[in-house]
């Protein structure tokens, strides 16, 4: 039971990180009609910049600095590349994001190399123990920060004019334009929000005992099943999908290690993703798209 709780806690903490990344995917997909394959590299950039600034600045300033850099990068990519390609069709845009992903990855390798770096988390290696279960501070921080960020996002989308304008743009672009909503600005806004989420995810992805390495970008791939399971256009779906993937990975590593060459927990999220695609193609929470009368 203790083991189950221990793994469950870690699974939720990891799942929250996936949720933040998945949310970024969903917000960009909804807000600008693109699937951004470079998002994982934005996560990596976030971690590397925090790490680079940490020795020189207080942690919170390093974090803010990374947000500035990563958001600027996202906006640059959005404005110079994607907005120009928008009328060339989705496939072109998505392939362009793949290209951007490769470029940013190469840039990271050039600046920081392939080697393993230190941790970039906001809290160290400390733990607290509750009833035999060890709760690492990094895990607690991950969960608390994620919940705060999710709540802030909820307020943003439900209660602010920009949030409403973003949802309107996601719902019907031409109608949004007709209301005087600048959809170019909305595309940029959705990318900026996704970039902020990427940086938040990155510091927890690089929290002790995890370290920064270029493979951090690959974690975004693990968030793709989360996105599909939850539903491409559902914010709640992204969170639930992220938690499902995190729990499967950590609980699976504990309880399924004796089956399938120990790879079951790695494959299972993808199996679940395919299952969802077959049974419920719009994801657990995705909308089928309400008919326009």
């Amino acid at each position: 039971m203790t083991l189950f709780l221990q793994l469950g806690f870690q699974g939720i903490a990891l799942g929250m990180v996936y949720a933040l990344i998945a949310l970024g995917f969903v917000i960009m997909t909804k807000g600008s009609n693109t699937f951004n394959f470079a998002h994982g590299e934005f996560v990596a950039v976030g971690a590397y910049v925090v790490l680079a600034l940490m020795p020189h600045l207080p942690y919170w300033l390093a974090f803010l600095g990374s947000i500035v850099v990563t958001v600027a990068l996202a906006l640059l990519v959005e404005a110079t590349l994607l907005r120009r390609l928008l009328d060339k069709g989705l496939t072109t845009v998505v392939l362009a994001t793949l290209g951007v992903s490769i470029m940013v990855h190469a840039l990271i390798l050039m600046v920081w190399g392939v080697g393993t770096k230190g941790s970039a988390g906001p809290v160290g290696s400390g733990t607290v123990e509750v009833g035999g279960v060890v709760l690492p501070l990094s895990g607690i921080a991950t969960i608390v920060a994620s919940v705060i960020v999710l709540a802030a996002l909820l307020v943003f989308f439900r209660r602010t004019p920009y949030g409403l304008a973003l949802r309107a743009t996601a719902s019907h672009q031409e109608a949004a334009l007709a209301q005087g909503i600048d959809i170019g600005r909305m595309f940029a806004l959705s990318w900026a929000i996704a970039a902020v989420l990427a940086v938040v995810a990155s510091i927890f992805l690089a929290s002790f005992p995890r370290v920064v390495s270029p493979s951090i970008a690959l974690v975004a791939l693990a968030a793709i099943p989360a996105v599909v399971i939850g539903g491409m256009d559902s914010l709640i779906g992204a969170v639930v999908g992220g938690l499902i993937v995190g729990l499967i990975q950590v609980l699976g590593a504990g309880y399924l290690a004796d089956y399938g060459g120990g790879k079951l927990h790695e494959v299972l999220p993808y199996v679940l993703m395919l299952l969802v695609l077959v049974v419920r193609p719009y994801g657990l929470f995705g909308s089928r798209g309400i008919e326009r009368v």
């Binding site: 083991l3 990891l14 690959l218 974690v219 693990a222 504990g254 290690a257 060459g261 120990g262 790695e266």
Partner: peptide, 19 residues
């Protein structure tokens, strides 16, 4: 214990070692 190359959390592996 083994890990998948994509694993980001090693609680399960470490728990098995400790156990």
């Amino acid at each position: 214990p083994t890990f998948a190359l994509t694993d980001k959390d090693f609680t399960a592996q470490v728990s098995e070692l400790e156990e």
